[in-house]
Simulated assay, not measured.
Amino acid sequence: MLIHNISNQDSILNSFLSEIRDITIQKDPMRFRRNIERIGEILGYELSKSLNYSSQIIKTPLDNCNVNLPTNEIVLCSILRAGVPLHNGLLNYFDKAENAFISAYRHHKHNPESFEIIVEYLACPNLEGKTLILADPMLATGQSMLATYEALKPFGTPKEIHLVSVIGAQEGVDFVNNNFDKDTHLWIATIDEKLNEKGYIIPGLGDAGDLAFGQKLQQ
């Protein structure tokens, strides 16, 4: 897997990351969503550098102009509900992309510290030969990302796969690295040290879905 950790180089991304972590700023859900969206825009810009381009002639009011434009057929898939702001940020840049949505959540059976990933709702276009972007803001264990990809397989084989996350734990990064093809790209804003006993990223930011859309009842 090709891992692109954008925080390895200082940029304005640091400001957005600091705000989504800050427990005081987190009290404003609208700002939290907007910051995730802005991080998605940055990740989308970096990802765009790896796409295929061809020269096209654009007619201006004064003359013709040659411009290299991306040729990839992109399908953008996000994991509900936490993935929505990240999806919007990516869609701001890949505005011609087709879209897929999937629900994948942790189901705690008997022990609150153990869980399985349940996939229910799924809407997806044909993926055959296209560029698939899987977006999930928190790459904790990596199981949700893999479960999502497995659920998408009946829709066709993508030409290439890009995983996009805001914050990941090293354990989750290692998991997707070991379970996705070596040509898969991971675009991630930053990588944190570890997971706690409940599978949450440390230091992380908490539950991205709750911070963006309000607390939910546990299943």
Rank of each mutant, 00 (worst) to 15 (best):
N14F: 05
I202C: 07
E197P: 00
S11F: 08
S144R: 10
R33W: 03
Y53D: 01
P61D: 04
L186W: 11
F16R: 01
Q215I: 06
Q56S: 12
P125N: 06
T190G: 00
P125K: 04
S50G: 01
F175Y: 15
N35D: 15
P85N: 10
F180I: 11
L132N: 03
M145L: 15
D181E: 15
I20F: 02
K198D: 01
E98S: 11
F115P: 09
S54E: 14
L122Q: 13
R21F: 12
A135L: 12
I58N: 07
L163E: 12
I36M: 10
E193L: 03
H87V: 02
T141Q: 09
A212L: 00
I20A: 05
P125H: 09
I79G: 02
L205N: 07
Q26C: 11
N92F: 00
N5A: 04
I188C: 08
W187S: 12
I201F: 05
K109N: 06
E19I: 10
L51N: 03
I6Q: 06
A212V: 09
N72G: 03
P29V: 09
E37A: 01
G168A: 14
P85K: 04
G129Q: 06
L152Q: 13
Q26Y: 08
I117A: 07
S11W: 01
I79V: 15
E128A: 07
M138G: 11
T71R: 02
N8F: 00
T184V: 15
I102G: 03
A104N: 07
F32M: 10
V176Q: 11
E113S: 10
E116N: 12
K96F: 14
G44F: 08
C65K: 15
L127S: 05
S144K: 14
K159W: 01
Q26T: 13
V173M: 10
F32N: 11
N99Q: 12
E120H: 14
S11Y: 04
G83E: 11
Q9Y: 05
G214R: 00
D181L: 14
K198M: 05
I58W: 10
A100V: 10
G172Y: 07
L134S: 02
W187Y: 14
A82I: 08
V67L: 15
V75H: 08
K59S: 14
K96W: 06
L91I: 12
M1W: 03
L47N: 04
I102E: 08
E73M: 03
G206Q: 07
G83S: 12
V166L: 05
K153H: 03
E160R: 12
K194R: 14
S114N: 10
P61Y: 14
K153T: 14
L17R: 02
E150R: 13
S48E: 03
Q170T: 12
L186P: 04
D95T: 09
Y45P: 00
A151Q: 03
T131P: 00
G156Y: 08
